[in-house]
Design a protein around this nucleic acid. Structure first.
Lengths: 231, 231
DNA sequence: ATTGACTGCGAACGATCATTCGCATATTTG
DNA sequence: CAAATATGCGAATGATCGTTCGCAGTCAAT
């Protein structure tokens, strides 16, 4: 099917393309990138459906409408596909970190980042992939390091965030920022893993609880008791 | 080795046991139960090491010091082993629910149950199994129902706990107990999944944060601001 | 147009894995 | 003791899976 399209395409361009069959020099690299993307999208779909180990390369080939031989021109192994997806996925997540500076208060900034992340994961339906990546990271060294890298990024960003807020007198002094960050991250992962929307917990229901958690942990110096209450 | 013991045992009982080779009628069932247990322990070890899909039946056989043919006398399939382990594991978890009634305050009871659970999981080194079971529950119907059952038990227990506390005027009225329970459970799972002790977060470091969380969510009517502070 | 590199194909290969089967031994029953 | 049954064994089986390979078509440059 795909081959048919390509042959049809060259029909009307006999004069200037049949003689010089290609007027586009960077077309190869372009197409290559598109193919890689196609494979990653197909693989993601399969992995969400059946898990890293449950989905076969043939499944991915079928989903990408591609032969095994073709697929292996772009990725040397199944592991490489898994690692590329883990890497992509984790990189996307980190994009939400920048939103921590948003909002009038430190709590609002934190909440903006967290809620944006939660909403995005739910909307894209990639929740299961998190669990899969987590499980894979327990045994695959490359995936583990990928996870650790993004965790490190988060920890650094959050530590800077908390330190700045503390110095500005916005929050009470916190003695153990390391533990604070680890615990918050663990809880955040739990929120992502459990497909809360499937249990009837929508984003707007979730928000006050997360805000209460943020207030309890960060304890902003002002408006201590009016904020952070679950309505 | 085990066979050796048995033959030695029959030495001094020539008269009444050599003629009637077995004086123990319920020995079969006993031994059967022991074998089942042996398999489950070996399988758990393998699954923690390599994951449900990564561990082969031959691995389990080697670990249990048993041939495939023998193993299949006790479990009809690998899936059956996985399901039995998931079931066992989840049942163990539920045992900690009963401790919620402990302690002088509602917060103490809650904390007793949570900390006991966290400590137990860490001590037994079964953290990875949680992630594995979670991932498996996304695709294996039996495992999913096993998870949902124990979640349901937890929800029921916690709802009863919170309702009683609310009626007794121990905590502020909570409008949305369903959401409260779901969010707390998700966060708790996150704490279990992330192997916090591996990141230097010991139980005693974790405790004040969990307590702050409990106070923020449950908001006991008295001592509102003195408790629930992270030191 | 010819050459050489790139891409695509899909049958085939070798490895692995869950599961089975025929046989031997051990235990229980009659 | 003999028949019946339960248990153990481990090589064999059939299926699946990741990966490879030879071939054919396409693209880019001379």
């Amino acid at each position: 099917m795909a081959a048919m399209e390509l042959t049809l395409e060259s029909d009307d361009s006999l004069a200037d393309e049949a003689l010089k069959p290609s007027a586009a020099p960077g077309k190869r690299a372009e197409n290559r990138e598109a193919q890689v993307q196609r494979i990653l999208e197909a693989a993601t779909k399969c992995f969400v459906r059946s898990g890293f180990r449950g989905a076969s390369m043939h499944d991915i080939c079928r989903e990408a409408d591609m032969s095994p031989g073709a697929l292996y021109r772009y990725f040397p192994s199944k592991e490489a596909v898994i690692e590329a997806i883990s890497e992509n996925h984790r990189r996307e997540d980190m994009a939400f970190l920048s939103r921590m500076g948003e909002g009038p208060t430190i709590i609002d900034g934190f909440m903006a980042a967290v809620m944006a992340h939660v909403t995005h994961v739910h909307a894209s339906g990639m929740g299961p992939l998190f669990t899969e990546i987590k499980a894979e990271s327990l045994r695959n060294e490359t995936v583990r390091q990928c996870c650790m890298k993004s965790e490190g990024q988060f920890i650094d960003a959050f530590r800077a965030f908390a330190s700045a807020a503390k110095q500005a007198g916005l929050i009470d002094p916190i003695s153990d920022i390391n533990t604070l960050v680890s615990v918050m991250m663990a809880m955040g992962e739990g929120i992502i893993f459990s497909d809360l929307p499937e249990q009837g917990v929508t984003a707007d229901k979730l928000e006050p609880f997360l805000r209460a958690l943020a207030v309890a942990f960060l304890r902003p110096a002002e408006i201590k008791s009016s904020q952070g209450k679950v309505k």
